[in-house]
Design a protein around this nucleic acid. Structure first.
Lengths: 362, 362
DNA sequence: CTGTTAGCGCCTTCAA
DNA sequence: TTGAAGGCGCTAACAG
């Protein structure tokens, strides 16, 4: 049994569908007050719910914002989703959700699905890749987005522009100064830490990770330090955990070795390219008996909500995740001219990189 | 500029729209191979994207699943959302997201919006309330859902049935044995813990919280213990934090007092009605210098993903959150007969309730 | 196997 | 101010 239609309401109210339509939606001005009353009563008694699908067909706008994330249960993405949702709310739109599990090939499918539903705009979060194996997916995604924009759709991307996408009308990037912030972080750490540095990054070709690695190295260089060793691993907690396991023994050995000569000066400092990875690293280290910051320092990136109650308190770079989502869901940058909003982050040092003498640590 | 239409494709291919439609979608069987080829090429060259809106209008199904949560950034809800998304994926549907910030009044609005978009089904997560002030919202929500179901919509609710909703066709509850599990938890804790118990619950009338409080008390009673004191606070981290602050001084005082007589036997055990609240409590306690489990034991409920890396490891009741979402998004219970699926949970004891002698603790 | 016809529910010209 | 007519893009019946 289908819902009642505008025609039924009109018939019951003894008016034409057109009139009913004018009353029930804000078409210019509501007709005669008496008529309006009748129509409204009829609609009410029938439990009339306007068919947004049909409305969307005749109007241009569908009132939908498409959102693409890797995993909605990941705190990084759910924070961004929260921001997108806020924009949607204040614009009286709804959010359509698609998840890709990080598979680039699924992105263009999602875009096509959104385009098919005539979403007013699309927000893409999640790291871009320039890896050889993703060339095909990138091309497909770029083509799909291009077409979508050409048809009047708006696209907001969090982080990097989609690889290969032409800077078409309606294409909008919320840029994150990953490199600069990573450099700042490195500078801050270098100012208090004298030991070696290790970077735990995602596989090369993941732009977000690459930027952060590059920035961190640049920061070290600027401080006159040698480049950090780079470990490549999965861009998630599991990847971090594996990297942590790989590092643990070395750290313990080094600690033993140094015990004799003098002090804990040699404890290394780890930079994980995001908090989720950092958390995985810490978990592995803890499992192996390595203590932070006693035996090793560590910093992450993003400042996800989870960190609020994570111990040891993790040094990181705070990103305004919700605002990034909010901005990406808007139709374009605040200032006209370039299709690019740039947000700002902030280095946040916490206990995980405190370099107080080891003897004072528990 | 609008996207190209089926008619354009048909014209370019020199066939009728009907034929083009048959080729581009799986209508029975694709027409002549040569024709099909032509149509496909035409569609390709025009960058044709079928208009799902129009398709939804003529067909019954819109391919949409509506999901209502309090806050998508809350790990409890994002885990459920993940499950819903999984079902959506395997059914080739998309998820429409609505958030209410816990405001019951927003729920019926969201349902109406979903109904307007002709969502195939709606999933509602988030605690039901029987508080007086929510009577109106409950009634509106029940009415809206009823109408939606009558029109052929399917509703899946996580936790409690919507207050006042008639058990209509298409209405489906994924029941959580909150009371039983809380009782089990109490029993387990009572078997190793001899001190007093304190429950930190949400305001009375929030069904999930009420069930857990009741179950916990029942479990204590079954173990021959007196009922726990119940503290009412907000059903979120902030509420937990405030409750924690309120408890901290008393715990410290009690600890001092007991120091003289004998041992740490009197340290209390806190049961927070969910993990998020428990985390807030722990944060407050930590800020006040109260250590867990040295000075106080604490357990939560849900086993959200965040707990994986939370220290001290928090005792809790594990709920299959993703599966709950998955089930709620299915059209009905596995076994026919009653519109009710019941999932099962499991008490998980971790360090936060370990009762080893205080002297062995760090 | 293909093309024609008739709507799905609604809005927006137009004419009255 | 109100009603009638046409069409948004697509599909499902019918014809041919």
């Amino acid at each position: 049994m289908a819902a009642s239609t505008l025609a039924e309401v009109a018939r019951l109210a003894g008016v034409s569908p057109a009139t009913a339509s004018r009353v029930l939606n804000g078409s210019a001005r509501t007709p005669g007050p008496d008529i309006a009353q009748r129509v409204r009563k009829a609609a009410d008694s029938l439990g009339y719910v306007p068919n947004a699908t049909a409305q969307g067909l005749v109007k241009a706008s569908s009132g939908l914002i498409g959102l693409i994330v890797h995993d909605i249960a990941d705190p990084y993405f759910s924070a961004i989703a929260h921001g997108v949702q806020e924009t949607a709310r204040e614009r009286h739109k709804m959010v359509l959700l698609a998840t890709t599990d990080g598979t680039p090939g699924d992105e263009h499918t999602a875009v096509a699905a959104f385009a098919a539903r005539r979403a007013d705009s699309i927000v893409i979060a999640g790291s871009r890749s320039t890896r050889r194996e993703d060339d095909g997916s990138n091309a497909q995604l770029a083509a799909e987005l291009d077409r979508y924009c050409r048809n009047g759709g708006r696209v907001g991307v969090v982080g990097h522009p989609v690889v290969g996408a032409s800077a078409a009308e309606g294409y909008h990037v919320v840029a994150v100064p990953n490199e600069e912030l990573a450099a700042e972080l490195a500078a801050e750490l270098a100012s208090t830490h004298s030991g070696g540095f290790v970077i735990i990054g995602a596989p090369e070709g993941l732009l977000t990770s690459d930027d952060r690695v590059r920035g961190f190295q640049r920061g070290l260089a600027a401080a006159g330090l040698p480049p950090a060793e780079v470990l490549r691993t999965g861009f998630n907690r599991t990847g971090g955990y594996e990297a942590g396991l790989a590092l643990a023994q070395g750290i313990l050995d080094a600690r033993e070795a140094v015990q004799t000569p003098g002090g804990a000066a040699a404890r290394p400092c780890i930079f994980a390219v995001n908090d989720v990875v950092a958390i995985g690293v810490v978990a592995a280290l803890r499992a192996k008996g390595v203590k932070v910051p006693r035996d090793v320092l560590i910093a992450g990136f993003d400042d996800i909500e989870t960190l609020r109650d994570f111990r040891p308190a993790l040094s990181t770079v705070r990103l305004p995740l919700e605002e990034m989502g909010r901005l990406a869901a808007l139709d374009g940058p605040a200032q006209a001219g370039g299709a690019r909003d740039c947000i700002s982050g902030q280095v946040v040092l916490r206990r995980s990189t405190e370099t107080v003498p080891a003897t004072l640590e528990q």
